[in-house]
Design a protein around this nucleic acid. Structure first.
Lengths: 343, 343
DNA sequence: TTCTCTACTGTGAACGCTCACAGAAGCATG
DNA sequence: CATGCTTCTGTGAGCGTTCACAGTAGAGAA
């Protein structure tokens, strides 16, 4: 294929070798490498041929040393570890971001900041300029890392609207409230009237917004809110099961339940089965996320699909724009109701 | 906390600033930074104080430029995307590796090489020395990326024994064969005699080894192998369901089935339910992996736990050793039978 | 004393790149 | 013919480190 070093390994070709091969100067090679402006067609041609011939690859360290940019971005997870571990959405998001960045030839550094120690180390690492920007997955309010990064002026895009941070931070989010409204309307359209809800943590936007959508629709429908039909979970399977137990105890006549995540909905299904309620005949169950768990459940879950592929590509787009000097921006993307067996 | 630049932002402190602050030379600061040998206690003290005071963080680009090392490693996934997407083991592995590396202050670059194009680009990136080594997740035989990296002399540790590569490549794997033996022995101990198997892809070590373990135990028990009881899947849920359908058609008297992954086992459960077989009364089902899917299934799966936490930390250990100049090594880790409701 | 050895310290010189600048053409305008 | 553009090209400087080397000081041995 491309020519490799003859004889001894080691010592990859430098911009110097390319320049010599092409019969031009370092400067010209550098210009070709960086967009090719102010380069004659003949020179550009010669340089490209020399690059192919030598198998030259730019040394990013040398470049970064002088430009001050690292041409890499961090994917920072400040959630407690279990969530990353349990939630399949992270997979999709991570994959999408990696691919979107790869299209720009920008590597992604994965960073986990679970403990206080890690948080400090990583904040240092980032503010020292080792990455040009950060994709942040941490919806909990008052996240100290996000706060520090923002203050240090590090380009930052959050996944989901960050609570408690100033408005000057970019984020990309699905339209949680609208998705919740769709689901509750769907349950109403099935004739259900005693609709419970298991919310997410109320210090997360998903928790707050999805509950708000639920309340809006029920209020608009003239049904009103019964506090016995509202409980909170933490997005874990177990909390879904516990939540459903509580709902059944407080409101035995419940005929539907909107659950703020598919994982919790799985727990709800378990609780309902334990209690001898049939799904969807006795109680209809609606989830949120359209994660693989939705299809893995029995019955399969009706749920709200979040456009994770678009979320990740938008996060990358907004981050790169911000690195390029643009102002922060918020992007809200629409959701979609996916009907399956549980309603 | 630590002192930040007074007034204008920008321009982080350099080793020079630290040296001036501490009243020593660049060289001494550098020595402190790199292990502190040949440095007087007084000087080391002064340097550390200066580092704290200035908030100095080493510029990795400058360091890498001269050392030729990048002090980062790649986590390379050459599996088709869906697998990454579906398989919860990847999460655990990725998390474990990230943390193990973080302990050495080494960032992890996530790389996905799904398409041919990506493969080429990433191979270039890696062989150009942008990472010091690679953690490889790709068990399929004849992986061209692995082959090229090996030939380029890039330190490499695979997850699972790579088929088809020379023996000179490091890997860390669970003892697949032994795990399979444990599970089949367990099924035998329950009195089952018509034991089916859904294997993984037979170009993966997990596929081959787990099947081998199955055959060994049945042969040792004097039962022998009935080809109608052996089918292959691709680790996906759907292939598990299809596999079980085929087994039921070929061997309706099957009273147990060993499935080479939990995800496929979920599919098997679905197929059995469809066919009206009770689990475990009519057919006992044993999985492999002890993934979250095992607990999410109904009934919960008896399965073989792979020590993912140890696998990841061993992968990192072996890789760092290899980067440090040691020879490749293979590490095999024991598995454990986890009994739940499905047997 | 003088010499050697050890522990420590400072000083260029790289590493491979980009950037600013200076200059060389080519071409139109005064 | 000088003057000004615009397009293109080469050159030196320097980014922040580490590394090799040349010292220096102090302790012990001869």
């Amino acid at each position: 294929m491309t020519m490799s070093n003859t004889g001894g390994r080691r010592k990859p070709p430098t911009i110097h070798d390319v320049a010599r091969e092409a019969g031009v100067s370092r400067g010209t090679v550098s210009r070709v490498l960086n967009g090719g402006h102010y380069v004659s067609p003949a020179a550009a041609e010669a340089v490209n041929a020399a690059i192919r011939k030598t198998g030259y690859v730019v040394n990013r360290h040398a470049r970064s040393l002088i430009t001050g940019r690292s041409d890499s971005v961090g994917f920072l997870l400040t959630e407690p570890q279990e969530r990353f571990f349990e939630d399949p959405n992270f997979n999709v998001l991570l994959r999408g971001c990696t691919q979107a960045l790869a299209a720009h030839d920008i590597p992604l550094l994965l960073m986990l900041a679970g403990t206080e120690d890690e948080r400090r180390r990583i904040t240092r690492y980032i503010t020292a300029g080792h990455v040009d920007g950060v994709l942040l997955v941490s919806s909990h309010s008052g996240d100290p890392v996000a706060q520090e990064l923002r203050e240090a002026g590090v380009p930052l895009v959050a996944c989901g609207k960050p609570i408690g941070l100033g408005s000057k931070v970019s984020y990309v989010a699905a339209d949680d409230r609208d998705g919740a409204r769709d689901m509750v309307r769907h349950l109403l359209s099935l004739g259900r009237r005693r609709i419970g809800v298991v919310t997410g943590p109320l210090d997360t936007p998903g928790g707050v917004e999805r509950l708000a959508g639920y309340k809006e629709v029920l209020t608009e429908a003239g049904i009103g809110i019964d506090d016995r039909l509202v409980v909170s979970g933490d997005y874990s399977r177990a909390s879904g099961e516990a939540g459903a137990d509580r709902l059944l105890a407080q409101a035995p006549d419940m005929d539907a339940v909107f659950v703020a995540s598919d994982l919790m909905a799985q727990g709800v299904l378990t609780a309902l089965e334990k209690a001898g309620r049939r799904v969807p005949q006795d109680v209809a169950v609606g989830g949120f996320d359209d994660s693989p768990a939705a299809v893995a459940s029995r019955p399969e879950l009706t749920t709200i699909r979040q456009p994770w592929d678009r979320i990740s590509s938008e996060m990358v787009r907004v981050l790169l724009a911000q690195i390029g000097g643009e102002d922060p921006a918020a992007v809200i993307l629409p959701t979609e109701l996916v009907r399956r067996e549980s309603t």
